[in-house]
C-alpha cells in the first residue's frame, strides 16, 4: 500500500484516497468548436507515461480535498504532491524528496 502525502493532512495510507487519473487536462472552453478528433483526444487519449507522471488524487476518506501528485510510475514513488491550481513542479526522477 502506498503512503500518499496529502497537502492538507500529511502522509496517509493509500486506501483513504481515490486516484483521479491524469492531471492538468483542461476541459475545452468551447467543445462545440472542436473537431471529433480533438474531442476524442480530450476525452480518451492519455499520456500514460512511464516515469514522472502528474495525476489527480482525492483524499476521499480524509479531508476530501482534491490535489495533484507527481509520481514515478516505474517505481510508484511519489515525488511531490501539490494543491489544485498550483503549477506542475519541474522535477525529474532522482530528485525524489525522501
Amino acid at each position: 500500500m502506498l503512503l500518499v502525502t496529502c497537502p492538507y493532512c500529511g502522509p496517509r495510507p493509500e486506501i483513504e484516497f481515490r486516484c483521479g487519473g491524469e492531471a492538468h487536462i483542461a476541459r475545452p472552453a468551447e467543445p462545440s468548436k472542436l473537431s471529433d478528433k480533438e474531442w476524442a483526444e480530450f476525452l480518451f487519449v492519455r499520456t500514460n507515461a512511464k516515469g514522472v507522471f502528474a495525476e489527480r488524487w482525492n483524499h476521499a476518506h480524509g479531508c476530501q480535498r482534491w490535489f495533484n501528485a507527481l509520481r514515478d510510475t516505474a517505481s510508484d514513488r511519489f515525488i511531490q504532491t501539490y494543491k489544485v491550481g498550483e503549477k506542475r513542479p519541474d522535477r525529474t526522477p532522482g530528485q525524489e524528496r525522501l
Binding site: 493532512c9 496517509r12 486506501i15 483513504e16 476518506h61 480524509g62 479531508c63 476530501q64
Partner: peptide, 10 residues
C-alpha cells in the same frame, strides 16, 4: 481527530 476508515466503513 480525523476522518479515516474502520474496515470498510468511513
Amino acid at each position: 481527530a480525523t476522518r479515516t476508515l474502520m474496515g470498510k466503513a468511513e
